[in-house]
Structure formats: structure tokens, C-alpha cells
Simulated scan of single mutants.
Amino acid sequence: MRLSAAFALLSVGASALSIFSDDKQHAIAADDDLDVPGQSPLKFCEGDRSNDLITIDSVILTPNPPEAGQTLVIEATGTVKETIEEGAYVNLQVKYGYIRLINTQADLCTEIKNVDLECPIEKGKISIIKTVELPKEIPPGKYVVDADVYTADDERITCLTAKVDFARKSSFFDL
């Protein structure tokens, strides 16, 4: 999975940042303290979120959970409590099972362009709708994405995590 694809999914929750579920049977609703409101498998990281610079009101993924080879539509709303300036960054980690595929620090203002935003991200309400084409070549398996987002002054913007189990597509030849 490309860095920009992984970040686009998660960056919706960090301006609200994306994705992923352990349960293919039903969409996940916000019924737990860590669940991000809406219809997505996004969860907040454990810990105090009262000083986070973004409040996420809702993230809706269609389809939920995402599927390889499908178009994913991400709708997110929230409030930016303080203007986010150049120099903000995200510590991004993507794991496939126990294998770490990505472990990087990325410039938020560069990556946020994937959801059609630019820095500075002004204080106030924010709404994002983004379409992402998920490659059909995503290998089946469990993926975990963690994104911890900070300002240039190391103030936490938000922290999100998500899980998805991309199932093997059955075909005529699998019968």
C-alpha cells in the first residue's frame, strides 16, 4: 500500500484522518469510548484526548469495511480548534499481520493535499469528502494503521488507529 494511499485514508481523520475493520459482517458504530463517531472502523488511540487540536464529529466510509478493488468514499466532519501551520507531521505505521510495512514520519501539510486541503488549516468547522480507488492487488490479510499527528511544536493534533481484514476474493477457480 502506497504511503499516500495509507495516509489519505487516515488523513481524513486528521483533518479529520482512514479505514479498516476486523468484522466484515457489519459496519462499526460508535458504541465504545474509543470509536470515532460515524460509520467507520476508526478508533482513537487510548489516552486523554481533551487537548487534541481536532475534534472529530463523524467519519463515514462507503463501503464499510473497505474492500480491495473498490472505490472508497470517505466523508468526515470535525472542528479544528487552532490553526494548523506548516511543519505539522504525522508518525505513520502500517503493519500487515506482524510485518511492519511502513514506519515513517511524514509532513502533514504535504500529505494533506491527498484530501484536497492545504496548510494552514484554519480554525473552525471542516468537512471532507474524498474518493479513493483501492487497488485490487491488496494482498489478503489483516492490516493495522496507526497515525499520531502533531504540530511543528509537538502539540498533539489527534491520534487514530484502524484495522482491516482484506479477505481473499473467491473466484470460479476457487470452487
Score class of each variant (00 low, 15 high):
residue 2 R to L: 14
residue 3 L to E: 14
residue 7 F to K: 00
residue 9 L to Q: 06
residue 14 A to C: 07
residue 15 S to R: 04
residue 17 L to G: 12
residue 17 L to I: 08
residue 17 L to V: 05
residue 19 I to H: 01
residue 21 S to K: 03
residue 26 H to Q: 13
residue 27 A to P: 10
residue 28 I to Q: 09
residue 36 V to H: 01
residue 38 G to M: 01
residue 43 K to C: 07
residue 44 F to V: 03
residue 46 E to L: 06
residue 46 E to D: 15
residue 48 D to A: 06
residue 48 D to R: 06
residue 49 R to S: 08
residue 49 R to W: 02
residue 50 S to W: 03
residue 50 S to R: 06
residue 51 N to C: 01
residue 54 I to Q: 02
residue 56 I to M: 10
residue 57 D to F: 09
residue 59 V to I: 15
residue 59 V to G: 01
residue 59 V to Q: 00
residue 59 V to H: 00
residue 61 L to D: 09
residue 64 N to L: 03
residue 65 P to S: 08
residue 65 P to V: 10
residue 65 P to G: 07
residue 68 A to R: 15
residue 68 A to W: 12
residue 69 G to H: 13
residue 70 Q to K: 15
residue 73 V to L: 11
residue 74 I to H: 00
residue 77 T to R: 07
residue 80 V to H: 07
residue 80 V to K: 02
residue 81 K to V: 01
residue 82 E to G: 02
residue 82 E to D: 13
residue 84 I to Q: 06
residue 84 I to S: 05
residue 84 I to L: 15
residue 85 E to S: 15
residue 86 E to K: 14
residue 86 E to R: 11
residue 88 A to R: 00
residue 90 V to H: 04
residue 94 V to E: 12
residue 94 V to L: 15
residue 97 G to V: 13
residue 98 Y to W: 09
residue 103 N to R: 07
residue 105 Q to H: 04
residue 105 Q to D: 09
residue 109 C to H: 02
residue 109 C to K: 04
residue 109 C to V: 03
residue 110 T to M: 14
residue 110 T to W: 04
residue 111 E to W: 12
residue 112 I to E: 08
residue 113 K to M: 09
residue 113 K to N: 09
residue 114 N to G: 11
residue 114 N to F: 13
residue 117 L to P: 00
residue 119 C to N: 09
residue 121 I to K: 00
residue 122 E to N: 12
residue 123 K to C: 01
residue 125 K to P: 11
residue 130 K to V: 12
residue 131 T to W: 06
residue 132 V to N: 02
residue 132 V to T: 07
residue 134 L to V: 01
residue 136 K to T: 05
residue 137 E to Q: 14
residue 137 E to V: 04
residue 139 P to N: 11
residue 143 Y to V: 02
residue 144 V to Y: 03
residue 145 V to E: 01
residue 146 D to R: 04
residue 147 A to R: 04
residue 148 D to K: 10
residue 151 T to Y: 02
residue 152 A to H: 07
residue 153 D to K: 13
residue 154 D to E: 11
residue 154 D to A: 13
residue 158 T to C: 11
residue 160 L to A: 10
residue 162 A to S: 12
residue 162 A to N: 04
residue 162 A to V: 05
residue 164 V to F: 01
residue 164 V to A: 07
residue 165 D to E: 15
residue 167 A to E: 15
residue 169 K to C: 02
residue 171 S to W: 05
residue 172 F to R: 04
residue 172 F to D: 09
residue 173 F to S: 12
residue 174 D to N: 14
